[in-house]
Amino acid sequence: MGKVLVLNASYEPLNITSWRRAVVLLIKGKAEQVEHNGKYVYSGFPLPTVIRLRHYVRVPYKEIPLTRKNLLHRDSHSCQYCGYSGDDLTLDHVIPRSRGGGDSWENIVTACVRCNVKKGSRTPKEANMPLQYQPRKPYSSLYFEVTKHVKNGVNQEWRKYVIGI
């Protein structure tokens, strides 16, 4: 039936859960329904798509791993120099490793093979190849999950609860 976005009492996104777990939280009075999609669990009980916890929950900060998969998702599976989107994308260091550039969210972008070879061991400015978007560290791991749902055309009502979509 779908996934449900769980908000903290402060309306900050916490996680994504199943509709069954969301219904249990609603029935137990631990959460309130914020959004629904017009479908019903049973007569008079709309299926939630966004719920908000009644009490604030402290959540420890969770570091997002710097992986190829996460970089591709952050950069929307496209070359950050020419915009090409295909299967044969590589990872490129904005400031090359040969010049002291390290592995960080702010220094690695996705690039097609052609642009990566063309840029070589130069900076984008030296190669006259400006970046389409300045690379940055994502807001949170939940941000990744939410953007996948919203970009697929599902759960558009989640958009207003997440910064940067």
Rank of each mutant, 00 (worst) to 15 (best):
P46C: 05
S78C: 12
K137L: 03
S43P: 00
W158G: 09
Y61I: 08
P96W: 07
Y161V: 11
R54F: 00
I27P: 00
L26A: 04
C79S: 06
D87P: 08
G153K: 12
R74F: 01
N37L: 05
V162M: 11
L89H: 08
L47T: 12
V162W: 00
G102R: 13
S76V: 03
T17E: 06
I163Q: 08
V23M: 08
V6R: 08
P124W: 01
A22W: 13
C82G: 09
K148W: 01
S141P: 02
L89M: 11
G100H: 10
G102F: 05
D87K: 14
G101L: 05
P130V: 01
W19F: 06
Y42C: 08
Y11T: 08
F144D: 03
S43K: 12
L47H: 02
N128L: 12
V146Q: 05
S140C: 07
Y40A: 06
K28W: 07
D92N: 12
A127Y: 06
T147F: 02
E157Q: 13
V34T: 12
N37M: 01
E145F: 03
D88I: 08
W105H: 03
L91G: 06
I165D: 00
L53F: 04
V117L: 15
C115E: 06
V23I: 14
A127M: 08
Y133Q: 15
Y81Q: 05
H93P: 07
Y161R: 04
S140G: 10
L91W: 00
V4R: 11
P135A: 13
D88F: 14
V113H: 14
A9S: 10
Y161S: 06
N107E: 10
A127K: 06
V109M: 06
N155I: 03
H77T: 00
V117N: 15
V4C: 10
H36D: 15
Y133F: 14
D75I: 01
L142S: 03
L14M: 15
Y133M: 10
D92S: 07
V6W: 04
R52N: 05
T67A: 13
K62T: 15
Y139T: 07
K125S: 15
G102M: 03
L47Q: 14
Y11I: 04
Y56L: 03
L26C: 08
L26W: 05
L25M: 15
V146S: 02
G83A: 05
